[in-house]
């Protein structure tokens, strides 16, 4: 693992106080209370486009306490490296978690988990972008998670596709993401960070799993799928279908936000 020599870190033996918290504060509160959302409800989403003025396109998304910002640069020309670039462009995704975003302070240097998330983001976005319209060019998508309150990959996918639309990049369809946590018999859509982790004992219980899905809603194509954990036979297809429904529910909100940004940028009608 690379060592960060430029920043001052605590001594090696230091541990986060989070580890010493009693387990009751670490387990999620159930979703059945009054006023709390149901198992199949996604959190209300607030989103805006066009925040970063320097970038070609950008967007900001908030879902519960999860805050994600995404900016798109390009298309720019790349030096010719191999033949595939002659016919289609290249998409480069960079996924970063701010060190203060999680409960435990993270490192600034990209760890292997961030690289994994970058790759998953790239795989989910690639089918949606018309790369053959940008031969020999490179489009950069940078995602930064400011606060991690669960489902970051799913919301990052949505945020990135909004930023690409804001930048005017040609796409076949918007890519929307939705994630789900299977906890025993409960199927929790759009889990927050406590629901996602569960308590460490739950690893030994039956039917535990996490599913993250990226969907092109109008074409009905799945562009990204990651499922972990041993779930029952019928649980996995049911979870995939539930995620697809979740994506469809989010579609109107995303559409509204992009149209509002377009209207703001459009010149006033000539009298």
């Amino acid at each position: 693992m690379p060592v960060d020599t430029k920043r001052v870190r605590g001594p090696e033996e230091s541990q986060s106080p989070v580890l010493f918290l009693p387990p009751s504060t670490q387990s999620p509160a159930g979703r059945s209370g009054q006023g709390a959302r149901g198992n199949a409800d996604i959190r209300p989403v607030f989103t805006r486009c066009g925040l970063v003025s320097q970038a070609k396109g950008s967007s900001y998304l908030e879902a519960g306490n999860t805050k994600i910002i995404c900016s798109v640069y390009g298309p720019r020309e790349i030096e010719r490296k191999d033949e595939t670039d002659m016919k289609s462009g290249r998409l480069v995704c960079d996924f970063r978690l701010a060190p203060f975003s999680c409960r435990k302070r993270g490192a600034w240097i990209q760890g292997s988990e961030e690289r994994d998330l970058s790759l998953a983001l790239l795989e989910s976005m690639q089918p949606g972008v018309c790369l053959h319209r940008y031969p020999r060019s490179q489009i950069e998508v940078n995602v930064m998670v400011l606060e991690n309150d669960g489902s970051i990959l799913a919301h990052a996918v949505t945020c990135a596709s909004m930023a690409l639309a804001d930048a005017g990049i040609e796409m076949y369809d918007l890519v929307l993401g939705c994630s789900l946590r299977q906890d025993g018999d409960a199927c929790l859509v759009d889990p927050d960070v406590l629901e996602e982790k569960g308590s460490w004992q739950s690893g030994y219980e039956e039917n535990q799993g996490r599913v993250t899905l990226a969907l092109l809603p109008n074409l009905g194509q799945v562009s990204g799928l990651q499922a972990d954990g041993e779930m029952r036979e019928d649980a996995l297809p049911a979870a995939v279908r539930t995620c697809i429904d979740g994506c469809h529910k989010m579609y109107p909100v995303v559409q509204q936000a992009i149209l509002r940004a377009v209207k703001k940028k459009a010149p006033p009608p000539e009298k």
Binding site: G128, L219, V222, Q226
Partner: peptide
């Protein structure tokens, strides 16, 4: 379960 590659799949 993981999807790999640059294309999309039907559910």
């Amino acid at each position: 379960v993981r999807k790999l590659g640059a294309g999309s799949l039907d559910p």
